[in-house]
């Protein structure tokens, strides 16, 4: 069982979205995910997941996807 880097990043983004966005509106939840990933993820990780958004589209949950779009815009 050896996960590749991209699938691991997708899983991490989904986990963050599932845990952090609770009790918030969708916009707030997206903001929280953006903030968390910006604070704790290295730039190459953000670049990698953003560069492969299409490939991961089916695997990313909606909040994570919206957050990554915003993150991508800032890269």
């Amino acid at each position: 069982m050896s996960t590749n880097e991209l699938s691991h990043l997708v899983k991490m983004a989904n986990q963050i979205a599932s845990n952090i966005g609770l009790g918030s509106t969708e916009d707030e939840a997206v903001d929280k995910v953006v903030n968390h990933i910006s604070l704790f993820w290295a730039r190459p990780m953000r670049e990698k997941i953003c560069a492969n958004m299409q490939e991961s589209a089916n695997d990313l949950n909606p909040i994570a996807t919206k957050a990554l779009v915003q993150i991508n815009a800032k890269l």
Partner: peptide
């Protein structure tokens, strides 16, 4: 000013060859 890799991410990136 950017955060770096955590151990887990270092290992993932090493497996990827970067």
């Amino acid at each position: 000013p950017e955060p770096g890799y955590r151990i887990t991410n270092m290992l993932d990136a090493a497996v990827e060859g970067t």
